[in-house]
Each structure stands twice: as C-alpha cells, then as structure tokens.
Design a protein around this nucleic acid. Structure first.
Lengths: 201, 201, 201, 201
DNA sequence: TATGAATGAGTTTTCATTCAT
DNA sequence: AATGAATGAAAACTCATTCAT
C-alpha cells in the first residue's frame, strides 16, 4: 500500500535522477524536474528544501549501497590457492559491475559531479572515494603474505585498481551501453591478477 | 619581443586557468577572471567572444599537447624482447606523468569538466578520450604478435590501462601533491606489464 | 453552550492575534496561524475568506470597543469646578488605560499596522483615528466656555492629547511592561490639565 | 561636478524614498524602484546589496540628522526666567518641525516602519526613540531645580512630550499637508509649558 | 465539517554580455 | 585598446489559496 505522498515523492526523485543524469546538477533547473515529474513548482518544495538537498539525497542513497558492498568484501584477494584468490576477485568484480549496472544513473551522477568537485557533494564523493581506496589497500596488505599478490606499495596499487574499475565500468556500461557482465568481469579479473602477480616468477 | 596585447591576453588566460581550476567552469564568473587578471570587465570581450570560448581554448591547448604526445608514442608495447617492451612502456608512462605534472591545471580542468560532461566541452573531451583509447588499442593490436602482450579484446584492455593512468595520475599529483615520478612510472609499468602478460606461462 | 464550530473559530482568531502581534501582518503566514491553532490549513478557509479578512475582523473588534468607549465619554472636560473637570479627565484616562491594557495585543496590531498604513487596514485605522480626534476636539469646544480649558484651536490641541495618550500608553504597557494605572493616569491628568490651562492666570 | 555613478545612485535612492513612502517597505518591489529610477533591474544591485540595505541606508541618513539635532539641544528647558525657558522650548519646537518638514518622507518611512517594528529596522528605530527619550528626560532633570518645570517622574513626562511631538507633527505635516510652522510651534510650546508648570501656583 | 497535498503567480538576486566614453 | 557602468534574461524559492478526499 503506497500513500499519495510517497507516490509524489517517488515521481520527483525519479524525475530528478533523470534530469541530473541528463544535464548535470548545475544545468538542471527545478522547473525541469517538476515538469518531468508532472507536478507544480511549489510541490517540489513540500518534499525537498532545495535543489541541493534532493541531489545529496540521491547521492547518499547510492553511497549507502556502495559502502555496504565494500564492507561486505572481506575476502577480496584472500585465498589459500591461486584459484581461490582468483575466484574471490572475480566475484568482487562481478558484483561491482552488477551494482553499477543496476544503479547506473545514480552512479553516474555521483562520480561525474564528484569529479568536477566543487560545491556541496565534494565531501560525499571524497568520503566514498577514500573508503574505496582504504578497503582495497587493506585487503591487499592483509593478503600480501599469501604470495598471490605482489606489490611495493599497497596504496599505489589500490589506486591503479580503482581507476581501472571506474573508468572501464563507465566506458562499457555508459558509452558502449551493452555489456557482457561475464566477459568483462573475467577480463578484469585476469588483468588484475596479472598486474598483481608481477614479481612472481 | 612581446606586444602589449599579447601580454594582456596572456594575463587573462592565466587568470582563467587559475579560476577554472579553483572553482570549476560554472562557478567561475567572468568578473573573477578579470579581477585576477587586473583588467576591466569589457577588456575580456576584446580577446574572447565568451566565457565558453576561453574555456575551450584552454582545453584545446592541452588537447594539442596531449594529442601530439599520443601520436609520438609509436613504439608503445613494441620491442623484440620483454626488456625492450618494458622499456618502451616505462618511457611512455614517464613522459605521460611529466605531461600531466607540467600542465596539471589544464589537465584537471579538462578531465574534471569532461567527466561532468554536459555543455560545450563534451565533444572536446570525447574526442581526446576516444583518441587515447584508439591509440592504445592500436598499439596493442600491432604488437599482439610479439607475444609480450596478451589479451582477448584490445579495446577492453585499453580501457583498463587508461583508467589506471588517469585515476592514479590525478590521485598522486593532485590529492597527494608530491610525487616521485620515477617510482610511480616504474610501479605503473610493472603493474601493466603484469596485467598484459596474464596468459603467459 | 458553545458549538464545536465556534470553538474552532475562536482558536483560529486567538492564534491569529498572537501571530499578528508577534510577527506583524505581512510576516505572519497562514501556516503559522493554523499551526498555532492546531487545525489544518484548509480549515482556516472555512471560517475566513482570506488572511486579510481575519486581520480586519480582529481590528474591527477592537475598533468597536474603542468607539463605544469614545462615545460614552460625553463628560470629558466637562464640569462646573476645576476639581470636577479634573475628575472627569482622570476617569477618562484611567478607563482608556484599562481598555488598552486589557486588549493590548489587538491595540498593538491596530496601531502598529495602522501607522505603517498601506493596504486594506488603512481606512479602518484612519476612521478610528479621525473619530478619536473628532470626539476630543468636540468635547474641548463644548467646554471652552467653562474657562477650565484654554486653547486657540481645538483640533491642534486634540492632536497633542492623542499623541500624548497613544505614545505613552504603548511605552508603558508595551516597552516597560509593568504599569501602575493609578500613577500613570494621575500624571497624565496633571500634565493635560496643565497644558490646557495655559493661558489661565 | 557630479559623476555618472553619483547621478545613478541618487536616482535610485530618490526613487526608493518615494516608493517606500508610497507603499511601505514590504510592498515595495525592487522592480518598482528601478522603474521609477529609470534604470535596469541589475543596476540596482551595483549600488546596493539588497532591498534591505538601501532601506537602512535611507533611515540611517535621517537618523544622523535627527541625532545631531538632539545632541545640539543642550539648552532645552534651561533658562533663568520663565520667558527664557519658554524661548528655548519654542526654538526647539520650531527647529524640530523644520527638520521633519524638510525630510518628511524619510521621517515617515522611519517612524512608520519602526512602529510596525518587525524586521531589520527595529534596532535603528529603537535606538533613535530611546535617544529621544533619554535626551528629553535628561534636560528635564537638569532643569528641575529652576522651578520652571514641575514633575514627579522625568521619564513619564518625556514620554508625554515625545508622543505629543511625533503625532502632531505627522498629523499636521502629513495628513493636513499645509502647516503654519510659527503657529504650530507656538501652540506646542504653550501646551508643553502649561503641562510642565502644573503644580506651580 | 475537516483535512493537507497541490498549485502557480510573484519576487529577489545573479551574472554573462553590451556599449557609451 | 581599454574601461566599467548598464543591461535584462534567467532561476530559486515562498506562500496564499484551492480542491480532491
């Protein structure tokens, strides 16, 4: 059972996501959002204090999903055999791609506006970015001893991985539109496993 | 010998780069630029048709440098021994880092605003991005036969590499501020060589 | 026996008086009133056609009281001895102070908004103000012959008296908060009697 | 020699005074002001940060005049004979009327909006009002010993006088429009001298 | 009768661009 | 060439009032 209010709010949020994704935060006017949502200008302000507030709300929604995904990734790079490590990396990649695919608009909004990094979303973006790096770095450090991952400096390596993830996810999901999750996650895994095995003979 | 006009134009461009980098395109006001440049509001329009034009000019300046750098990278991934291939990748990385380091503000402006990618710079950004992918992909294809680089799909692999380049360059140059070019280019090279050698036994 | 409707209407009026007094007509929102009254936004419009209407209603309520007070003041300045005249002025002052004290919020609303005198209450304010002047002037004229009040022009004198009344009532009731009705009405009477006896030797 | 800027600013201020006087602060739109001043909407904001700022500026201009007038009134109620005291009060009244007459619009703006006493001019109004009371009270106290002024409480008496001043000035300058400064100041003086001589036999 | 969600006209303010000097 | 005052279109936000339930 869904109330009238919830329906209206959903319409506004949904329209806002579409517009922010299409035109960016700065260029999206509140009048664009309400026009798309099919409600009056004033109605917007019954649900959100400002354009900024709804934007942040949308970002934070995705940030929550993303954060809990990262926190669950406790066995990234872990394993007692090369195969097991590879399997864990593969799972991580596959789930990460899925997360992006399902929430592609919100993801795009967050990472685009975060990159242009001025205004009020900068802290939100910085937080998630730092968290991403921290988790990947920690997992690398934890599993250095297994010998299946090799590196001089975990933070540097984590940065490589994140760049690789993010760019290619956007390129394939966004630019290319169609995406073979299985193939992409496998190739990603192979590249990463290769990159991390570098000094192994 | 530099004319007064050239000097004034230089002042405006230089101020614009600083402001765009500091506040982003949308939030930078023409009045910010002229204030920093120490000229009058009207003077700006003697040299540039619009705020957009100067922005594009700055981006294109960097795009030219970047393009010619890419075009010169004819021997990326080439070589008749593993060591030679590695050396070429290392040179490429080192020069790329140098290019970013020297032009960090313009690079940041282009890639940040490009990511948020709406408005008139989108084509500029797309062009350079596509060119980057094309060149890396072509070099990979050209050297597949040597056996020192292994991959299923060159475009996928190129995307991995570019993500890795870009993110880590910004992270280390920008966020970390200080950067050891030698160490970073070496680690980058090792990771890439590893990633590209994946199926090699 | 009071109906539910009457109770609701009373709640709204009472809340409106509080809010108009606290924030003024312009700054008081209908939503402030209904919030304070504990009814829904729409309910307001079942009882009043507009924000203006309730405002006018409140003012007119006080105006009625005030008018009938003035009309009753038939023996102001009258008397066959100085002592009797003084006594009548004293009574008038005391009752006037009482009227203001009891209805301080409505009085404040009327006189404040009347002073800033634009919009729909201007006529209401002007009417009461004119009536006040007329009555005082007429009483002065009627009793000029007694010799206990001396003046060149009754209207001028009436204006003096009204300014004296109004300002000091607000100053002592409003600003000073606590008020000694006996002392204030006595001092007022003495000052007025003095002012009106000026040419008497 | 008057600059273009000064001329424009003067036009805006002058139009603002007219509009504030005609419609009050709340009802005056910036678009009213610029229309009357014959400049563009944006021009207003080259000279004033907000509608509030210009309003306060106008009020403070008058407050300065008024304050310095009060500070100069050192001999109010002073004198070694009844005639001399009377002469000083008369001068004060005449000059006060003149001050109001010359600056009638600004005076009206200040006292009207101050009376409705919400918003940002309240402190300005309160300050001048308090100063007025303080000065009159002090002058009364200083000259109590001469015996030409009689009262129980100087503050009460000061309040009477100020109410009398203000109301009648507005009534005659504003409502009646035409005003005989000599006659009004003389009658005011007589009334005040009478009121203050009350206990004298 | 009562509710409260929805409406949309109205107002302030910003800032890229123009143009008279 | 240079100036900087002037322009006016555009956009966010408020709130009295309406209306479906």
């Amino acid at each position: 059972m869904i109330t009238r209010q919830e329906r209206t709010q959903q319409q506004i949020v949904s329209a806002a996501i579409d517009m922010f994704d299409e035109k960016g935060f700065q260029k999206t006017r509140v009048s664009d959002i309400v026009a798309k949502a099919g409600v009056a200008q004033g109605t917007f302000y019954l649900y959100f204090k400002s354009k900024e507030e709804i934007f942040l709300g949308i970002c934070l929604e995705f940030v929550k999903l993303f954060s809990s995904f990262l926190e669950d990734a406790s066995d990234l790079f872990a394993g007692s055999s090369y195969g097991e490590v590879r399997q864990n990396v593969l799972s991580f990649n596959r789930e990460l791609i899925r997360l992006y695919t399902v929430n592609i608009k919100a993801a795009r909004i967050l990472f685009r506006e975060g990159a242009s990094s001025h205004g009020p979303f900068k802290p939100v973006y910085d937080r998630i970015y730092t968290q991403f790096i921290d988790i990947v770095r920690d997992r690398l450090e934890q599993n250095r001893a297994t010998g299946y991952v090799n590196f001089e400096d975990a933070e540097t390596e984590a940065t490589f991985l994140i760049g690789l993830f993010e760019r290619s996810l956007f390129y394939f999901i966004d630019v290319k539109q169609n995406i073979d999750i299985e193939a992409l996650s496998r190739r990603m895994t192979d590249f990463i496993m290769g990159g991390l095995s570098k000094y192994r003979t």
